[in-house]
Write a protein that binds this DNA or RNA. Structure first.
Lengths: 334, 334
DNA sequence: ACGGACTGAGAAAGCGCTGTCTCATCGCCG
DNA sequence: CGGCGATGAGACAGCGCTTTCTCAGTCCGT
């Protein structure tokens, strides 16, 4: 004989609390939100009832009544990438201080999915943070037109009144180039990152700027993962470059591993740079020359910016955060 | 003269759509949810109106009316740890197929915060996934008592009817010990992970089990980060161990780096093992002997289990997923 | 002792949906 | 040709809160 399911106990509502505390629903609400004045004794009774019943206001009902959900949608291309999980972590801590929660979605680097998820997030969220969106400009514009507070991290789109916070990728890679040039390198290979990525475009822009100080750049399609860097080993050796600029630290470490296997010494035979400074960069052998990006500040800045957007300030200028070159032992004279 | 703020345009509601399509609200709802039968012509008119107005149903209103939010709460100790961000990623993809979204919170490894966030998540979510919760048993019990679908990943609590999916940490570390014993090691040092962590307790249990095949274990407090491993270098050398079992790959790689700096050869002077198999493990020099855990399967399994819990099935047995020892070059004969 | 300014607290109208109930309408069989 | 089951579609009552409005007391000045 099948045991009846324990019939999901009815939700405890504010009315239950009111009844238990012998107060009105409005009063309970007041106590809950600390709005208006309530007689201390009554308030205490209410608090007690809340405690005893284990009452928690329904987020849906609050959201509906208040007209805002207290939720911010965050869209990332790949949550498994520490760059983004770090950002989400910091951002979510930042907005929690504002009383907001974060709904994360992962587009798996697919621009089409990205648009769709963003539309879905809108239904839930009071504001949106788009991290390094790969979607076409038109989609981005459509999203902006929806009118809800929208912030973009690490992408700029000239002419599209986009509020954004960005890392100074261009400046960072320029610094890398300067460093390499100073060491006497003339020919460098660049292991390129994801196609649609703004960060990749910025790096390319810096690279072409670096021609002005005599750098000759070969661009090799690669990717953003350790495996991609490892795989790129032979291709790199096919060039006559004396230095390799990897898209990021993962790629650099993957390549470093392959080079070590192949008996190529770093920086003796080949100099190598990364980007983003992951923890392990200081711990590889040799330690990696890379660019430190202010992850924490980025998340923080995004949180603040979105807070202000949601408060109705619309005169926000976009911010670009400075980066810092970290010279270590993976780079040497040509 | 200050430009008036564009007065946040009123939300487009289902009523607007009904009006535009010259249909009733109920009909629009039917079309939206594909429930009941609607005349094809009318349905088409509705769809058109939705399209034209750019209407999106409010998640809050739907949630309130339906009695469920379509959101699942996920609580992790540290989203910056790839172990968890990977899990969240896979899990969230898994439950999206169910039409659910994921609300992530990060407790920063603080058991007290953990409890609080979990309580908050309940207000938003239809179900909860607690990842490697560090909270005391009593708090966990209180959460279970709340009655909503609750799943725990990587923690077991005997006697607490907890639905869980776990990695076979014990088995994995036992395999590591066996491997080391076979190589002739007798004295090993264990770099311990976070205090409250079940995974750490399981490792310790395996270690004490390993005494049966003659292993003598020194436990050193450490942590779960690369830096912790790096810092533990001298302490490790103070022991007379011939092999080091690190809490995870990060710790192992940190230690490896320090050992390299100190001129200690791995595995010549000291064997070293990790756990969790991060990407970089194969790319260190030497490549790291570690334990591969089925991250993907874990997320998948969690998604399925929670789906079934939410469907009312309460007879779920807990699952433990098998792991695999990956022998590489960081371990050698004693 | 009486009117005006406050203060504390309840009643009730939404918020934007869903889902049930009800009501037309229509085709069809007897 | 009347009655009956289908079928399509609207009305309406919630869902659990917030918030305005209203009202009964209080406290004071005159």
């Amino acid at each position: 004989m099948a045991m009846a399911k324990p019939s999901r106990t009815r939700r405890i509502t504010i009315a239950d609390v009111a009844r238990a505390a012998d107060a009105s629903v409005s009063t309970v609400s007041r106590v809950l939100n600390g709005i208006g004045t309530v007689d201390p004794a009554l308030a205490e009774r209410v608090r007690l009832a809340i405690e005893e019943l284990g009452y928690r206001p329904s987020a849906a009902a609050q959201g509906l009544a208040r007209g805002r959900s207290g939720t911010i949608g965050v869209l990332v291309p790949d949550l498994a990438n520490p760059h983004f999980s770090d950002l989400v972590k910091v951002f979510s801590a930042a907005v929690r201080d504002l009383g907001a929660r974060v709904l994360v979605m992962d587009s798996d680097e697919d621009p089409a999915v990205e648009r769709e998820l963003a539309e879905d997030l809108i239904r839930y969220a009071d504001g949106l943070l788009l991290c390094a969106p790969r979607m076409p400009r038109a989609d981005l514009a459509a999203l902006v037109a929806r009118g809800l507070p929208l912030l973009v991290a690490n992408r700029q789109e000239p002419g599209l009144a986009l509020h954004s916070v960005c890392i100074d990728v261009h400046g960072g890679l320029l610094a890398v180039c300067g460093h390499l040039a100073q060491l006497g390198h003339r020919k460098v290979a660049y292991l390129a990152g994801p196609e649609g990525s703004w960060a990749n475009r910025e790096r390319l822009r810096a690279l072409s700027g670096a021609r002005s100080f005599g750098l000759e750049v070969t661009v090799l399609a690669c990717g953003s993962l350790t495996d991609d860097g490892y795989a790129a080993g032979p291709a790199v050796l096919d060039t006559d470059a004396t230095a390799v600029v990897a898209y990021n630290d993962f790629v650099a470490l993957g390549l470093l591993s392959r080079l070590t296997e192949l008996g190529v010494r770093v920086p003796g035979d080949l100099s190598l740079t990364g980007f983003d400074e992951i923890d392990l960069a200081r711990y590889s052998s040799p330690p990696l020359t890379t660019v430190a990006v202010p992850r924490y500040d980025l998340g923080r800045a995004a949180g603040e910016a979105l807070a202000r957007l949601m408060a109705g300030e619309d005169d926000l200028e976009s911010r670009t955060l400075p980066v810092e070159l970290r010279v270590r032992e993976s780079t040497g004279t040509a």
